[in-house]
């Protein structure tokens, strides 16, 4: 069975996504890292659906929908920010600084 290795792979991919979020400052790459994490989770769902039924695959479908929506809105926000600051570097987007 591929369930165990799939889950390990899912964990590795998820961690890579997290590391990417931590070390990158480019907003678009950050979004890509988030997509990577969503994909890792999808892999878990699919792998587990082999043991626990098709509910997991349906959930993957929903995740994809949400990811698409999130990408659309997120990229629109990046567009708006870019217009404002001429940059997508998060270093320049720190209005929440304490």
């Amino acid at each position: 069975m591929l369930l165990g290795p799939s889950l390990v792979l899912s964990a590795i991919l998820f961690a890579i996504g997290v590391i990417g979020v931590m070390i990158r400052r480019n907003a678009i790459v950050l979004f890509m890292c988030v997509e990577l994490m969503l994909n890792a989770v999808n892999l878990s769902f699919v792998a587990l659906s082999t043991a626990h039924g098709f509910g997991g695959q349906v959930m993957v479908f929903f995740v994809m929908t949400v990811a698409a929506a999130e990408a659309a809105v997120g990229l629109a926000i990046i567009l708006a920010i870019f217009r404002h600051t001429r940059s997508v570097d998060l270093k320049n987007i720190n209005l929440l600084q304490g």
Binding site: L2, S6, A47
Partner: peptide, 18 residues
């Protein structure tokens, strides 16, 4: 990998949508 896990529909969606 999805195909290997017998999730052909999801695999197709992955390529198409993502």
């Amino acid at each position: 990998i999805y195909v290997l896990l017998h999730a052909q529909f999801i695999a197709a969606m992955q390529v198409l949508v993502y």
